[in-house]
Each structure stands twice: as structure tokens, then as C-alpha cells.
């Protein structure tokens, strides 16, 4: 915890974030490119779904980051509520659009995958519906956060909403276990993917995650810079 609190100092945060951003970003891009190439060329097709199963190398990391993004956002909101540190709300603001993008990518790749395998673009089953809801909740959080900032609120309302929204995470995750759904059950954590098809997924999972972290750091730096500009303009106007 003391280490985290030390990082909460914006100047110290920027000193670390500045060199870290391109490292995370480019290693992430490289891993994703290699993982996708390997998933398209080095692995055998799935016995049942044939070539269409290869989309899992994008679909699974998107789902992971769509949900992981909200976990990060909720943790940032929670620490903002507890310690009132402005950097926590900057982090939440930086994560939201990135998480929403991956949630959308998850829905999109899932839809493209569902057409040839299930025979439908979309069905209102528990997993698909709860994931769509998570995407809408991201959009709602972004709208609420902007409205709060515009009315110069203290950020407590979006922070509360960010914590409350985590109610969706167990629903998305357990929907395929506790409910009967069209979507199949857990594959990755239960080890149901043969290693010869599985290994490129580790590259795309790690790659997209680093890429995500890089984008979030980039956005946090941009938000901090724009806050600085605003403060300077205000001082100049006052002088």
C-alpha cells in the first residue's frame, strides 16, 4: 500500500508513466501481431468448428479486457471514494473508453463467430445479454462522468456508479455456469482447449493486456496535461 500511495503523487506517477507508455504499447502490439499470425498459420483447425474457431485469439482477450477494464475502473473508483485521490478518478476516466472499446470488440467478434457456428448473429441468452449490458454501463459511466465534470462536481457520483456497476461482473462470468445459455461454458480457465490450439492465445492475451495498459497510461498523461493547461489558463485569467 505505501508503494501505491507514493505512486499517487502525479509528478512521481508521470516520471514512471512517461518511459513506461511506449514500452507497454509496443511490446503489446508485437505480441498481438505474433499471436494472431501464429493463431492463423501455426495451429491446427478445431475438430468441430474448423477454421472459424481461430477468432478466439481476438474474442477471448476482448472479453477479458472488457471485464478487466471494469474491474480496474471499479478499483479506481473505490480508492477515489476512500482516499479521495484525484489520480484515481483520472485512472477511471482513462480506462472507461478503452474498456468500452474492448467490450464492443468482444460483442462484434462474438457475433461474427456465432453466425457460422450457432447459426445466428445474435440471441438474447444470459452471456450475450449481460455483456451487452456491460457495454451500455460503460457508455453510461462515460456520460455520467462528463456530466459531473461539466457541472464541476467532485466526482463522487461517477465513482459510486463505478463501484455499483461491478455487480455485472459476476453475472457476465457466471452466466454460462449458473444459467443455461447458448454460449458454451468456460474453456480457458478449465483447461478445455488442447495445448496445440491454446498457446497463441497466451500471446494475444498478454499482448492486448499490455496494449491496454499502454493506452490507459497514455490517456492518463493526456488528462493530467489538459488539467494542467486548464489550471494555467484559469490562473492567467485571474491575473
Amino acid at each position: 500500500m505505501p508503494a501505491l500511495h507514493a505512486l499517487a503523487n502525479p509528478a512521481r506517477f508521470l516520471r514512471i508513466a512517461r518511459p513506461l507508455t511506449p514500452i507497454l504499447f509496443w511490446i503489446g502490439v508485437a505480441l498481438v501481431l505474433f499471436g494472431c499470425w501464429a493463431g492463423l498459420t501455426l495451429t491446427p483447425p478445431d475438430a468441430v468448428q474448423k477454421e472459424s474457431a481461430r477468432i478466439l485469439y481476438i474474442h477471448v482477450p476482448s472479453a477479458w479486457l472488457g471485464m478487466g477494464g471494469w474491474s480496474g475502473l471499479a478499483i479506481a473508483c473505490l480508492s477515489y471514494l476512500i482516499w479521495r485521490h484525484p489520480l484515481a478518478s483520472v485512472a477511471a476516466r482513462a480506462i472507461a473508453p478503452a474498456g468500452a472499446t474492448f467490450a464492443a470488440l468482444c460483442l462484434l467478434t462474438g457475433s461474427i463467430w456465432g453466425r457460422p457456428t450457432w447459426g445466428t448473429w445474435w440471441e438474447w441468452d444470459g452471456r450475450l445479454t449481460s455483456m451487452l449490458l456491460l457495454f451500455f454501463v460503460y457508455i453510461a459511466w462515460i456520460a455520467l462522468d462528463r456530466a459531473d465534470a461539466e457541472r464541476s462536481g467532485d466526482g463522487r457520483v461517477p465513482a459510486l456508479f463505478g463501484v455499483a456497476g461491478s455487480a455485472l461482473l459476476p453475472i457476465v462470468h457466471y452466466s454460462v455456469i449458473w444459467w443455461n445459455t447458448l454460449h458454451q461454458g468456460e474453456s480457458v480457465v478449465t483447461g478445455k482447449i488442447h495445448i496445440s490450439l491454446l498457446w497463441p492465445l497466451f500471446f494475444t492475451l498478454a499482448g492486448f493486456t499490455l496494449f491496454f495498459a499502454g493506452v490507459v497510461l497514455m490517456r492518463m498523461r493526456a488528462i493530467l496535461a489538459s488539467q494542467k493547461v486548464e489550471a494555467r489558463l484559469r490562473r492567467m485569467a485571474a491575473a
Binding site: T43, P44, A47, Q184, G185, S187
Partner: peptide, 22 residues
Amino acid sequence: LAKHDERYMPPQAAGNMHETKT
């Protein structure tokens, strides 16, 4: 609608003789 299970494996492991070209 077809509902498939959560297992993914190459055709050889599934024991069918589907062509295995990538």
C-alpha cells in the same frame, strides 16, 4: 441453432480424419 461445447482440439486429437491443413 447449434450449441457447441467448450472443448477445442485439433482433428487428430478428436479422432476424426478431417484434413488438417492450416
